[in-house]
Design a protein around this nucleic acid. Sequence first.
DNA 1: AACCTGACTTCGG
DNA 2: TCCGAAGCCAGGT
Length: 106
Amino acid sequence: MMRDIEPVFYQRVVRLIKNIPKGKVATYGQIAEYAGNRRAAREVSYILHSSSEKENLPWQRVINSKGRISMKPGRGYELQKQLLQDEGVVFDEEDRVDFDKFLWQP
DNA sequence: AACCTGACTTCGG
DNA sequence: TCCGAAGCCAGGT
């Protein structure tokens, strides 16, 4: 499934995501940057899409740079939001997460 | 190879 | 703040 994505990059992404503490969130770009390729946000997305179950990743803790959930209603949005709320993450009236409070700072 | 798509991001108006 | 466009990288057709 992973094929040509740099194995090192892949491993780093997996490790970083597993390190996001409960109740915190990270952005795709943030993970990509810490993994060594700040332009690979879409690859982070791809890794989550393809390996979340296999790697047992807390996939719900990765959201977009706007502080919103990227998945669309009916295709995962509700589940992700519920999982985050269950661990204490708060969404404002604009459906955004306050990075000052919830962004993961390694 | 060409083209489309996506759980992305940045920048300009 | 809010789009739209452009940049980005891989995978699927």
